[in-house]
């Protein structure tokens, strides 16, 4: 039996119906057309499905859709302000912090959550802050540099 859920996604009030065993990731991708969040593993190991729920970074493959009731969910689709990219998005492109790009949405969401908590992270703090996200293309070097550069810009330094 499908359950009706009311929630907020990227600032918009959203209603959807889902089965009790559907993950939030399934709902985002299959019911709401928000395919920016990716399924790389479905076991919480790769971070490609990272979203923020009430400001907390989670793997959306590990949360049920019905648990989204009355929550505030932020996905990669909500990061840019219209045509203005979030500084992390800009820096990821500038630093070539993506090759294939499939892990990129998860990294951006995780990096945004990291910088919200720690606006001036050390390299080590960035590396541990992003350790829940797998990238197989870049070796992480350019990702770390992009996050450092974005953090600097966001601090107005």
């Amino acid at each position: 039996m499908a359950v009706l859920v009311s929630t907020t996604i990227n600032g918009d009030a959203v209603e959807f119906a889902c089965e009790p065993d559907e993950t939030l990731l399934d709902v985002l991708r299959n019911r709401l057309g928000l395919t920016g969040s990716k399924e790389g593993c479905a076991t919480g190991d790769c971070g490609a499905c990272s979203v923020e729920v009430d400001g907390r970074l989670i793997c959306s493959c590990l949360m049920l859709g019905v648990e989204a009731e009355d929550r505030e969910i932020e996905t990669v689709e909500g990061m840019a302000d219209g045509a203005t990219l979030h500084p992390l998005q800009t820096k990821f492109i500038e630093h070539a912090a993506l090759q294939c790009g499939v892990c990129t949405p998860g990294f951006l969401v995780a990096a945004k959550a990291l910088l919200a908590k720690n606006p001036d992270p050390s390299e080590e703090e960035i590396r541990f802050g992003l350790a829940g996200n797998l990238c197989r293309c870049t070796g992480y070097d350019k990702i770390v540099r992009a996050v450092q550069d974005a953090a600097k810009e966001m601090r107005g330094a």
Binding site: G36, K38, V76, E77, M79, Q89, F92, I93, V102, P105
Partner: peptide, 17 residues
């Protein structure tokens, strides 16, 4: 800058699934 950059940082790029 790469031509597919914005699509890939905004979630617009369409992968297999």
């Amino acid at each position: 800058l790469r031509p597919d950059g914005i699509d890939k940082v905004t979630g617009r790029a369409k992968y297999g699934a």
